[in-house]
């Protein structure tokens, strides 16, 4: 094993040691070698391949010319890249995508901030009824969305808000129970001294929150935003119920938009459209992955 690998692993170990220290002879030796796990490796490679194959098949379908649909072959006679532009025109793809983007970002920003506020309140502040309210929060995590969706629809239609993006503003501002829970866990784990010093300096709660706690929770902010963005980007029932064909999202648009007049899906365009629909969330995830993983780790989910 190379020196480089040894020192890299030492850095990750909880107790700092000299990088040159030979592995082994200390009392309570911690293995520092890159161990070989042939069985684990093979299992993981097989799992990765199996899980990835549907994506490959989707790409192949997206590139299949119409004349090859239904043909008994693994690869099409030619790759037809124009399927992607066709998919963009078969349904009003770009305006649907814009709606998805606006709605997901709007909800993502609002709920990330609002959940942080509430999580901070539950973690660091005290008031009568706090225990009960926290119980209510945990309870609401178990309420299936369908329970509230239809009565909420009736409520919003009473104020003529059905067909607008306002419901997402309200949902966003109300925070997401699961995200609030993550924030609460994270903020609880920070030392008391953090705000004691600031209070002595005369800082108000809002300033303490904005200047000390919010910046510290950056990985969790990323996690919360990605979770919220993906939830709305992928949500089908919400826009299907609350929006109309002029302002609905991609999730609704692609679910039945690629059917021919007989009601059967046009497979190559459907695949191309679905692929284009997946790309933004996958790219967002890949970009945010490090923070996203750290966000979960830092909240010490328990």
């Amino acid at each position: 094993m190379s020196v480089h690998e040894i020192s890299a692993e030492t850095a990750a170990a909880p107790t700092p040691e000299q990088p040159q220290a030979p592995a082994g002879p200390r009392p309570g030796p911690i293995r520092r070698r890159r161990e070989r796990h042939p069985v684990a490796f093979v299992v993981l490679v097989v799992a990765s391949v199996l899980i990835t194959l549907p994506f490959v098949e989707l790409l192949i379908n997206a590139l299949t010319p119409s004349s090859d649909i239904g043909a008994d072959r693994w690869l099409p006679s030619a790759f037809r890249w124009a399927n992607f532009t066709d998919a963009l025109h078969y349904i009003p793809y770009l305006s649907l995508a814009r709606n998805s983007l606006v709605l997901s970002s709007l909800f993502g920003v609002l709920t990330t901030f609002s959940s942080a506020l509430t999580g901070y309140g539950f973690a660091r502040l005290h008031g009568p009824g706090k225990k009960i309210l926290f119980g209510v929060l945990v309870m609401t995590m178990m309420v299936p969305p369908i329970v509230t969706l239809i009565p909420t629809y009736l409520l919003f239609s009473l104020y003529n808000l059905v067909g607008t993006y306002w419901p997402w503003v309200f949902w966003g501002a109300a925070g997401t129970p699961y995200t609030i829970f993550l924030y609460r866990q994270f903020f609880s784990s920070l030392p008391k001294e953090l705000e004691e010093a600031a209070i002595l300096d005369g800082a108000g709660r809002i300033r303490i929150f904005c200047q000390i706690f919010l910046p510290l929770s950056r990985p969790l902010l990323v996690t919360a935003f990605v979770l919220a963005f993906n939830a709305v980007w992928g949500d089908f029932i919400g826009p299907d119920l609350f929006l109309n064909s002029s302002n609905t999202t991609l999730a609704v648009g692609i679910s039945s938009g690629y059917d021919n007049t007989a009601g059967y899906p046009v497979y190559n365009l459907l695949a191309a459209g679905a692929l284009l629909y997946i790309v933004p969330v996958v790219v967002l995830f890949l970009f945010a992955q490090r923070s996203y993983v750290r966000g979960f780790a830092s909240s010490g989910l328990k």
Binding site: L117, T118, Y120, G121, K130, L133, A174, G175
Partner: peptide, 8 residues
């Protein structure tokens, strides 16, 4: 406390 959790 109630101020912070009021949106939720």
């Amino acid at each position: 406390f109630y101020g912070f959790i009021s949106p939720w």
